[in-house]
Structure formats: C-alpha cells, structure tokens
Amino acid sequence: MSAPIIIAVLVIVLLVVFFSIIPVGMWISAIASGVKISVFSLVGMKLRRVRPAFIVRPMIKATKAGIQVTSNQLEAHYLAGGNVDSVVNALIAAERAGMDLTFEQASAIDLAGRDVFEAVTMSVTPKVIETPQISAVAKDGIELLVKARVTVRTNIDQLIGGAGEATVLARIGEGIVTTVGSAKAHSDVLENPDEISKVVLEKGLDSGTAYEIISIDIADIDIGRNIGANLQSLQAEANTKIAQAKAEERRAMAVALEQEMKAEVVKAESEVPKAMAEALRSGNLGVLDYYNLKNVQADTKMKNDIGSGIKQYVDSKKDK
C-alpha cells in the first residue's frame, strides 16, 4: 500500500473520530442562533455523558425567546434527573404571561415531580375540575346528590410541598356536606344552590394546596333517599325487637317462677304423709279421723271429676 493511500486512510479515520467526539453540527447551529458555547464545552458534555442536543436545543430556544440561561445551569439540571426542555418551555410561557418565574424555581418544581410547564399553563389558563357526586343530608332527613365544577389555577409559590388536586376535591366535598347538613330543609338548598358556593369559598379550602380556587359552581343537584324516614323505620324496628326480647324475658321469668311455686307445692305435699304418720304415732290423730279425712278427699276428687266431665260435655255441645 502506497504512502498517499495510508495518509488518506489516516485522515479519514481522524475525521471520523473528530466528528464523533466533537458535535460540530450542533456547535454550528448554536453559533448561528446566537448561543455562545465553545467546542470544548460540547466535548466536556460528551465526556460527562450528557447528550449535547438536550442542552444546546433548549439553549437555542431560550435565547430566541430572550431568556438568559447558561449551559452550566441546564447541564446541572439534566444531571440531576430533570427535564430541561420542560423547564425552558415553562420559562418561556411564564415570560410571555408576565409571570415572575426564575430558573431556580422552575427547576425545583420540575425536580419535585411536578409538570412545571403544565403548572405555568394552568396559572395562565385556569383549569376546571369536576367533583364526583357528593351525598349530603339536610336537617329534614332528605339526601341531596350534589356535583360541582371547580375552577382552579396553579399557585406557583406553593407548588412545591403543596397538596394536590385530590386534596382540593376532598375539601370541597367536605364543605358541601357541611353546608347542606346545616340547612333546615332540602328545599332551601334547591332554591339557593349558590349559597353552597359562597359558604365553601369562604372556608379557604385552597389553603396549603398547590392551587388557588377561583370559583365553585354547582353543576347538578338531585334528590336522593329519605334518610330520616329510613332511620326512623330502622329505629322503630329495633325498638320492636327490644320490646319483644324484654317481653320474652318476662314470660320466661314468669314460667320459671311458676315452676318454682309448683315445686314448692309438691315439696309441701310430700311432707303431709310424714306429718300424718307422726300424728298417728303421737296419738294426735286417730284411725277414724284418718279414714274420715280420706273419705273427704275421695269425695272431693269425685266431685271434681264429675264437674270436669260436665264441663267438657257442655263445651262439646256448644261447639256443635
């Protein structure tokens, strides 16, 4: 192989290595867009495993929008795991809307896991969120099913660490339940649904959240169940069961008392033969007296049996 060919191959190899290490095309695009960045900075990004396109393109976008950011700021945010392009878009949107948003604020919001561009957009153009159907009961026991539309915008100052959309909806639901529950009758709420919005707004439900509530509008109110009547019915049923249980308890106690009394009678009757035997031995009762007593008992038993038979006969005649 001749020397010129070897030299040409070496030159080609050097050029390939040069263009693979140094993104010349990206550098030219940056210079043409007025972005001041050196070739050595691009090489340093390569060595730090930072894709130059993820830094240079947002810088070009920011420069064209008149926003001053440095490559070090964007690179540090990228290495921290942030979305550089979203931060730059948020800065541009904030600048166009006249909002005072710094790069440090935007990068902090992005690193906190929030969509900073969406937050700025919501701050400029409020968002409408709808609550699920909320069940509330007025003092007259009638259930109302309320659905509200809430207009909110982002509170940039409280976006980091502030509660989210779910908390806002939960607080609004709590406010609606409290307001309807304090109404004397459900008809009062149906006549003036705007009173719910006024009372809920006065409670400052957006405190400590990432949103600012602009308005609360009642979208729909439906009449649900008669909770009061249902509760009274359940209470009456419970009272009936309690009364039945107490009556059964009294009946059981009466039966037990009756059985105890019968046992006492049987016990007393069992003592009679012993007493008679003792009376005969002691001479207090003679044999003739004893036989007379037995005759009286037999006569009494016979009369009872005859009376019982007559009564059964009369009853059978009446049934026929």
Rank of each mutant, 00 (worst) to 15 (best):
Q133D: 08
A119T: 03
V128W: 09
A148L: 07
D110S: 09
A138V: 03
I92L: 12
V124G: 06
F103Q: 02
A148I: 09
K147Y: 00
E118I: 15
L144V: 01
M99N: 10
K127C: 12
D115Y: 05
D100H: 06
V150M: 09
V150D: 03
R149F: 06
R114H: 10
A119K: 11
E130M: 15
A136V: 02
E130H: 14
T131F: 02
V128H: 13
S123R: 15
I109E: 04
I109T: 05
G141I: 01
K139R: 03
I92C: 07
V152S: 06
T154Q: 00
A93Q: 13
R114I: 00
E130Q: 15
T125M: 13
I156V: 04
M99Q: 13
M99W: 13
T151L: 14
V137Y: 04
A94M: 07
I142P: 03
Q105S: 07
T125A: 14
E95Q: 15
Q133P: 04
V152K: 05
P132N: 14
N155D: 14
D100T: 12
K127M: 15
A148D: 02
L145E: 01
T125F: 13
R96F: 13
G141T: 04
G113V: 03
R153M: 08
V152H: 04
R96W: 11
I156Y: 06
E143P: 08
R114L: 01
R114W: 04
M122P: 10
